[in-house]
């Protein structure tokens, strides 16, 4: 559970630090008649709400993957663990995911600068690459099954299928947001109208890329 605890400690640290900044030395019961106390700004975050929502969601997903990794580390120590050979195809898939992340970042920049054509290209390329990643992962499963690495034959295998499936599901969820952005562009929205959606997609894709790199690295190294 060390990994999870470190993450929780980090998050709690952020929460506490932010609260201290807001609340330390404030005496809400003191009414100073000299100042218009009501004019004090509430100190709400100025970020778009959807963006804050996404970051909170990412914290939840991180918590989940941390717990999976903790479970992995604890289960690994038991005697029956036989690492499985990761198919080389995974490297290709990783490349696809990296490229899709780059394409989305490119689209995000294009949206910022109102370059609608580059935005469309970037968004479409990112989608195609991501679908390529998903298909590639399915092929990797196929390959492993053909080679006799079944889910129920070893916990290492089970974790491999579990990790890839969950990561894939999160990617699919991201693709729903991606489809919404693309369809709005098709229906004639301009860059400014999809700027936030594209930005959020990009953040989510980078996040899932990092998650994948960590999971892949973990499985390669153990």
């Amino acid at each position: 559970m060390t990994i999870t605890l470190l993450f929780m400690a980090f998050l709690m640290g952020v929460v506490v630090w932010w609260l201290v900044k807001q609340t330390i030395n404030i005496k809400p019961w003191v009414m100073d008649d000299g100042v218009l106390v009501g004019d004090v700004d509430a100190g709400v975050l100025s970020e778009p709400k959807a963006k804050t929502g996404l970051w909170v969601f990412l914290a939840v997903v991180t918590s989940m993957f941390c717990l999976f990794i903790s479970a992995y580390a604890m289960r690994m120590k038991l005697g029956d663990w036989t690492p499985l050979p990761e198919p080389d195809l995974l490297w290709v898939n990783t490349g696809l995911l990296v490229l899709s992340s780059i394409a989305l970042q490119w689209a995000r920049n294009a949206a910022k600068q109102d370059r609608i054509d580059s935005l469309k290209v970037g968004l479409n390329v990112a989608g195609v690459l991501t679908i390529g990643f998903i298909v590639g992962q399915l092929f990797a499963w196929r390959q492993l099954v053909d080679d006799g690495y079944f889910l129920n034959s070893n916990p290492a295998n089970a974790f491999f299928y579990l990790f890839t499936a969950l990561h894939g599901l999160h990617i699919l969820g991201g693709l729903v947001a991606w489809i919404r952005a693309v369809s709005r562009l098709w229906r004639g929205s301009d860059a400014a109208q999809v700027r936030l959606s594209v930005e959020l997609c990009a953040v989510y894709w980078h996040f899932l890329l990092i998650v994948w790199l960590i999971l892949f690295g973990l499985m390669l190294s153990t």
Binding site: T23, I26, P28, G38, V40, A42
Partner: peptide, 8 residues
């Protein structure tokens, strides 16, 4: 939060 509604 509405105006004036600080955390505290």
């Amino acid at each position: 939060r509405t105006r004036g509604m600080t955390l505290m």
